[in-house]
Amino acid sequence: MNVFRLTGDLSHLAAIIILLLKIWKSRSCAGISGKSQILFAVVFTTRYLDLLTSFISLYNTSMKLIYIGCAYATVYLIYVKFRATYDGNHDSFRVEFLVVPVGGLAVLINHNFSLMEILWTFSIYLESVAILPQLFMISKTGEAETITTHYLFCLGLYRALYLLNWIWRYYFEGFLDMIAIFAGLVQTVLYCDFFYLYVTKGGKDRKKVMLP
């Protein structure tokens, strides 16, 4: 464990909590892409199956359970409890265009051809593009609530910090996972446009305007 990975995990946890609280407190999921949240739930489910097979640490296990629990709770709030506020018309990204290529890539490029490893690889590739429906939805509506931009900032920051963690681990531990690094780079690059807007427009107006 190093400072980049710890702050990365905390940033990820913050994002998940921010979103869950926003929906719960405002009793509305307006402006939130349910499809992205379903993809995140799938990412955590396929990645954390090792909860059933191996124990690494209390931190590792508890964080995984929190991530999975919050992901499914968020999906539940969007599609069941506050489904009347779900903006299905703007959440129109065709996720099959993500899941199918990612699934194919996971079968073709992985570290070893075992079910657990392919599912883990699938979750790594899927996570790198899971935010696209959300970014697409914001570009369609042309705006996002301030709290949603904070959610996206923390979510984007987490993987950027993980990139620094991988540099650290390569230098100090000789650890190198090209699949995670490649997907992490793609994931972080997807947020660059948003990061720029978040920093330049930060705090100016209540509704953040996102250029399409």
């Binding site: 990975r5 090792d50 964080m63 993980y162 000789g174 996972d177």
Partner: peptide, 10 residues
């Protein structure tokens, strides 16, 4: 350089 077999990252 090796890819650590046990996945210890979230």
């Amino acid at each position: 350089v090796f890819q650590q077999m046990e996945k210890d990252e979230l």
